[in-house]
Simulated scan of single mutants.
Amino acid sequence: MAEYPQDVVQRFHGTPDQVDAGLVGEPPRTWESVVIEDTAQEDAYLPALERLGYRLVLREPWWHGHRMLLSPAEDVNLHVWPQGAPEPIRHRLFRDWLRAHPHDRERYAATKRRLARDNAHRPRDYSLAKNDVIDEIYARIFAA
């Protein structure tokens, strides 16, 4: 295997202040969350998303008012929760943990690949079957 200089091998991590200082101009609007008071008031946000081609595919009021829309190319799942819901925070914690913990990231990815193969025609079963590995990872997140 080739040897590389230390400045190639060592990955640089900027501080939050450095990342903020690197922004040129104003942040794009797409970097912000859209604040929705009540996801049940679909007429306040669905028409604009539908004009962009998004299609409502899930309505789960029991899960903090969650809605999920699918992009026209079916390559983006857009999740919508009301302001103050805990799930967006949990999702960001999960994302950040997976970015920083390769073992859990690979375990989660392998689980998803296996479940997608085994449950390709049963999305509900695929979604529910991920719960065990997700709960194990959340236990490590909250214990850290």
Rank of each mutant, 00 (worst) to 15 (best):
D96S: 08
D104H: 12
R122Y: 08
L46P: 03
W31D: 13
Q18T: 09
L69F: 02
Q83I: 02
I134D: 10
E87N: 10
W63G: 01
P16E: 00
L58M: 06
Q6G: 03
A143E: 07
H13F: 07
Q41V: 14
P123F: 03
L56R: 04
G25K: 00
D118P: 00
A143S: 10
V34I: 15
F142K: 04
T39F: 01
R11D: 00
W31R: 00
M1Q: 13
Y126N: 01
L56D: 00
L69C: 08
E3F: 11
R29D: 15
E37C: 07
D135S: 09
R92V: 13
D38M: 13
L78H: 07
D132I: 01
R95P: 00
T15W: 11
H101T: 15
D104G: 06
N77A: 06
P61I: 04
E37V: 10
T15G: 10
E106R: 02
L46C: 12
A100T: 15
D7Q: 14
S127A: 11
R113Q: 12
H91D: 07
G14D: 06
L78A: 13
E32N: 02
P86M: 09
Y4Q: 11
H66I: 04
V133I: 13
A129D: 04
E42T: 14
I141G: 04
Q83G: 08
D132M: 00
W81M: 03
T111Y: 09
N77Q: 11
A2P: 04
L93P: 00
I141M: 11
A144W: 09
M68T: 07
I134V: 08
G84Q: 10
W63E: 08
Y126I: 01
L98T: 07
E87W: 04
D132S: 04
L56C: 05
A143C: 04
A139W: 05
D75Y: 05
D43W: 05
R114G: 01
D125L: 05
Q18W: 05
A116I: 02
D96C: 08
A44L: 08
L128W: 01
V76Y: 01
H101C: 13
L58V: 12
D125F: 02
L23F: 05
R107D: 13
F94L: 13
R124L: 15
R140Y: 07
H79K: 10
G65T: 09
L23P: 01
K130I: 05
G22N: 12
R95N: 09
D43A: 13
R117Y: 03
S33G: 04
V76N: 04
L56N: 02
G65N: 04
R11P: 00
E60S: 09
V8W: 12
D43L: 15
Y45R: 12
D38G: 13
E60L: 11
R67A: 04
V9D: 01
R51S: 13
M68R: 06
E42H: 11
P28K: 05
N131T: 14
H13M: 03
D118K: 12
R107A: 15
L56K: 14
S33L: 12
G14V: 03
R67M: 13
E74N: 09
A40Y: 08
P16F: 02
A120Y: 13
W81L: 12
A139Y: 15
R51V: 15
Q41Y: 06
E42S: 05
I134Y: 07
L56E: 00
A129N: 06
Y4N: 09
R114H: 08
Y54C: 07
N119A: 05
R11L: 07
